[in-house]
Design a protein around this nucleic acid. Structure first.
Lengths: 330, 330
DNA sequence: CTGTTAGCGCTTTCAA
DNA sequence: TTGAAAGCGCTAACAG
C-alpha cells in the first residue's frame, strides 16, 4: 500500500517540538514573532517529519488560496500553449498554483469550470471567452477576473491588437501592387475575428483596395483548405487569413491546385504560431500570446494584492513579419 | 469594488431554508436521505443565493479534493498540448480539476511543484519527468503518482512505444522498393531518439536494407532543413526523421532544391504532431500523446477510487500513418 | 427524515 | 515570546 499515509499535520510537529500548534504556524508565517531558538526547534521537528503546510487548510482560514484559474478554449490550439506557459511562469514567481481549464470553445463549459473553480481560486484569467458579456460581468462580480482577447468595459483585460499588424500587412500587399484582397474569417463569435476583419476593411478602404470576405467556419487547417475554391472565386491576388492555421490550410489547398504562392497569389497569416515552419515560410502578423499570458497573470496578482478593482485595458501591439508568401501581384 | 463579496455559505442557505446546515449538505451530496420536499426547498434557497459548495472546505473534512496535478516539462512543446487537453477532458468527466505545472525540463522545479501541490491534490500525473528514480519513488510513497514516458518499476506508468510504428515505416519503405534509408536523428541525450534509432536499425537489418544516420542537432524545423545536403549525400531514397518538426524542415529543404516529394524521395516523420498540416501531408508515426494523457488520468482516478496500488505498465503502441510523402522508389 | 455535535488543518485575536 | 480558544465551510457519525 503506497500513497496512503496521511501527510503530517501541524499538531504532530507541535507535539514533537513541544510547543503549541499556533507556534508552529508562526514559525512558518511570522517567524519574527518567535525566538530564534523556538523557530529552529520547530523547523527541525517539521523537517524530521517531512511536514509541509496544508495550503488547503490555510486557505480555509485565511481566505487566500494562492491559486488562480486559467481557462482557455483549446489547449491544443497553438496560440495557447505559449500563453499557458508564460502564465504558469508568472504565477510560479509568486508561489501561486494554476488550475487549468479547457472549454472546447463552449460557453457552457466555461460557466461550468468557473463555478467548479469557485472556492479554490482567488481569481481567474479567462482567455478568449465565448461567454456573453453579461455572464462575464456576473462572474467578475463574484471573483476577480482578467480577460484576454475580450473587450468588456469595466473588466480588466489584456488585448492583443492585431490592428497595426494587419494594417501593415494590407499596406505591404498594396505596395506589391495587389488591388483585390480577400479576408478569410475565423469564428463569428470571436472578438479577434471581428477586430481583424475591421482592420482589413479599414486598411483596404484607406488604400483604395477592394476587399472580399470568405468564411472559414473554424480556425484550423482543414477549414482553411476548404475555403480555397471560394478564394479563387473572388479573384483576389492577396489573402489575409484569420490565423496561421487557416493560412496554412490555404497554402496547402492552393498548392494542391497548382496555384503557386507567392507567384500567383500572396498569403498573409496572423498570430505567428507556426514560426517559419510552413513552406513557403509564412508572412504573418506577430502574436505575443506569451506576453499576454504573463501580463494577464501579473495583472490578476496585482488586483489580488491591492484588493482594488482596476479598469485596466492593456493593449499589446502587433507588427508584420515578412517571410516568403508575399510577392508582387501577378 | 467588484469581486469582494464573500461567497454564500452553507449556513446562509440553511437559515433561509429554515433547516440545519447538515441538511443542506445532504441536499447536495445524499439527497436520497431527505424528503423530496426538503431537498426542493433547500435547492431553491441555494439557487436564490447563488450558493455553490466550497470544494475546499469539503476537501478539508473529507480528505477528497477532487483535484489532481499534471506536471509536464514544457507546455509549449507540441507533444504536450494534446496530452494536457485529453487529461483535462478525462478529469472533467469525473468532476476533477487539474493543477497544471510546467517545469522547464528542470528536476528541481518538478520537486517544487510536487510539494506545492501537496494538500491540494489527491494524486498527480508526471509526464516525462526529469527527476531521479529514487526521488520519484519517494513522492509516490506520499501520494498516488502516475508516470508518462518514464519507466520506473513499481510506479504505475504509461509508455508510448514508437518501435512498432518505426518498424512499419521501414517495412512500408521497403515494400515501395527503397533500399537505402537515412535516419535523421534527434538530440543524442534523448531517450526517444535512442529508442527510435534502434528501431530503424533493427528493421533495416531485418529487411536487408542499408541504413545511414544523419545528425540534426536539435529537433526543429531549421535543423531539419539544414540536414538536406547531408541527406542527399547519402544517396538515400527513403528518409525517417526523428520527429515531425524535423521532417517538415526536410520537406522544405527538399522543395527548395527542386527535389520532389514523394516522387524523388520519400519522407516519414514521427509523432504526428502536425496532423495533415504539411504539404504534401506527411506520412508519419502516430504518437498517441493524447491517449497517454487520457489513460494516465483514468488510471490515476481508478487508483484513487479503489485506494489500491497497482503496478501497471501500460504500453501504447504506435503505428504508421500513411499520408502522401511516401511513394515507390524512383 | 432531520438536528446535534465534533472535527478536518490551519490562522488569528486575545491573554498571559 | 508563547499558549488558549474560536472559527474558516463543510461533512459525518450519532441520536432522535
Amino acid at each position: 500500500m503506497i500513497g496512503k499515509n496521511r501527510a503530517p499535520t501541524i499538531s504532530q510537529v507541535a507535539i514533537i517540538a513541544g510547543v503549541n500548534r499556533s507556534s508552529v504556524s508562526r514559525a512558518f508565517n511570522r517567524p519574527e514573532l518567535l525566538s530564534a531558538q523556538t523557530v529552529a526547534t520547530i523547523k527541525a521537528a517539521a523537517e524530521s517529519l517531512g511536514y509541509v503546510p496544508n495550503r488547503n487548510a490555510r486557505a480555509l482560514s485565511t481566505g487566500r488560496h494562492s491559486n488562480i484559474g486559467l481557462i482557455v478554449p483549446d489547449v491544443a490550439n497553438p496560440f495557447f500553449p505559449p500563453l499557458i506557459r508564460a502564465a504558469q511562469g508568472e504565477a510560479d514567481r509568486s508561489d501561486f498554483c494554476i488550475f487549468l481549464g479547457n472549454t472546447d470553445e463552449d460557453a457552457a463549459q466555461e460557466d461550468k469550470l468557473l463555478t467548479r473553480f469557485a472556492g479554490q481560486v482567488e481569481g481567474v484569467v479567462l482567455a478568449s471567452p465565448r461567454l456573453s458579456d453579461d455572464r462575464i460581468r456576473e462572474h467578475a462580480a463574484r471573483k476577480p477576473l482578467v480577460l484576454v482577447n475580450r473587450d468588456v468595459a469595466g473588466i480588466p483585460r489584456v488585448l492583443i491588437d492585431s490592428g497595426p499588424g494587419i494594417a501593415e500587412a494590407v499596406a505591404h500587399l498594396a505596395t506589391l501592387g495587389h488591388r483585390r484582397i480577400a479576408y478569410v474569417s475565423g469564428p463569428g463569435i470571436s472578438w479577434s475575428n471581428k477586430q481583424r476583419r475591421i482592420a482589413v476593411r479599414k486598411a483596404t478602404t484607406r488604400l483604395g483596395l477592394e476587399m472580399m470576405t470568405v468564411r472559414a467556419l473554424v480556425p484550423n487547417f482543414e477549414a482553411g483548405q476548404r475555403t480555397v475554391p471560394d478564394i479563387i472565386a473572388t479573384g483576389a491576388t492577396g489573402v489575409v487569413a484569420f490565423d496561421d492555421l487557416t493560412a496554412q490550410g490555404i497554402l496547402a489547398g492552393l498548392n494542391e491546385r497548382g496555384i503557386r504562392v507567392p507567384d500567383d497569389i500572396s498569403v498573409v497569416g496572423c498570430d505567428d504560431v507556426l514560426g517559419a515552419a510552413t513552406y513557403p515560410p509564412l508572412t504573418t502578423v506577430s502574436n505575443r500570446s506569451s506576453e499576454a499570458g504573463k501580463v494577464a497573470v501579473a495583472l490578476l496578482l496585482d488586483i489580488l494584492n491591492t484588493r482594488a478593482t482596476q479598469d485596466v485595458r492593456y493593449i499589446l501591439d502587433t507588427h508584420l513579419v515578412i517571410r516568403r508568401t508575399t510577392a508582387p501581384a501577378p
